[in-house]
């Protein structure tokens, strides 16, 4: 097609209708921080660009059942300034804030980060660790699925034609809970995770870990929920022995490839190191909460 079409509907229904009716290649524009790069680099030549930022429900943060529903097009900067989310889920917020520079933060969204489906997306392991769910709207109505089920491989999602992610839901937290996300990059900024690790845990009255979720990024075709790593923590006081087991489980679960961002064996090693450090940070937060 000669011309690229741009549409900015103001309701979810209108957006779904446009997507269902579109022929050719379609791309959703939220923050655009991945999309515009892909366009400029001429990796993609979409026929329709559907801007979802004009849909009010996608740009709101609201309380729901003690948790938070965050519109898919809420920017990193907005999320970073939301005291409620920051207090409840500091690990998720710090993960989102790692996406790009200050300028990028003013545009980048969690919805975009999730649906771009990069295995190295920073917010995704933190969201998985948090037990977040994604709300999806489509021609057959709405559904809600765990975030770990959204990405299926590099650049691929489980979304069917006509579907968009409208929001991400972060559940309420029990007392003495904490989460953290760490990524390894060779630089300090402006880089993509070589390994990312998100940990969320809850302590019981005796200081033992009663619940935990551990997720790894950039070590497989998509972000991984690592149950074995979580089990290494549950029932323990999160002491050195438990952390060692966690690190081992994380390294064992990592199934990376050699690529321009790091070697396979390096990523396996650092998966354990980061999972351990993230667990220590989450533990500290749980103790203080």
């Amino acid at each position: 097609m000669e011309q690229m079409r741009y549409e900015a509907p103001d309701t979810v229904d209108a957006a779904v209708a446009l997507l269902v009716g579109a022929g050719g290649e379609t791309r959703i524009l939220a923050g655009g921080t991945d999309l515009l790069v892909q366009l400029r680099a001429e990796w993609i030549e979409p026929d329709l660009i559907l801007d979802v930022k004009k849909i009010p429900e996608l740009t709101e943060i609201s309380k729901e059942n003690g948790g938070f529903r965050i519109g898919a097009a809420v920017t990193g900067a907005e999320l970073g300034e939301h005291l409620g989310v920051k207090k409840a889920w500091p690990g998720v917020v710090e993960a989102v804030e790692l996406i790009g520079s200050v300028q990028i933060q003013s545009r980048a969204t969690m919805g975009g980060n999730l649906c771009n489906a990069s295995p190295a997306a920073d917010s995704v392991p933190a969201l998985i660790a948090a037990g977040a769910t994604a709300a999806i709207a489509g021609p057959n109505g709405r559904r809600e699925i765990p975030v770990e089920d959204v990405g299926t491989g590099p650049g691929r999602t489980c979304l069917a034609k006509g579907e968009i992610v409208t929001s991400i839901f972060l559940p309420s937290r029990p007392a003495h809970s904490g989460d953290a996300y760490l990524r390894f990059i060779p630089r300090t900024e402006m880089d993509i995770a070589v390994v990312g690790a998100g940990v969320s845990l809850t302590l019981d009255g005796g200081g033992k870990c009663s619940a935990a979720r551990v997720a790894l990024g950039a070590v497989a075709e998509r972000a991984l929920l690592v149950d074995a790593a979580a089990r290494a923590l549950i029932g323990t006081p999160v002491d050195d022995a438990a952390l060692d087991n966690l690190a081992k489980a994380a390294s064992a679960a990592a199934r990376p490839i050699d690529d321009k961002r790091g070697t396979k064996e390096y990523r396996i090693k650092v998966s354990g190191v980061l999972a351990r450090r993230a667990a220590q940070a989450a533990l500290e937060r749980a103790r203080q909460s």
Partner: peptide, 18 residues
């Protein structure tokens, strides 16, 4: 002296391919 090479040099991992 990238991170994989440094870890290789101190024996924390095996041969780095980078």
């Amino acid at each position: 002296m990238s991170p994989p090479r440094v870890l290789k040099a101190i024996g924390a991992i095996g041969e780095a391919q980078a």
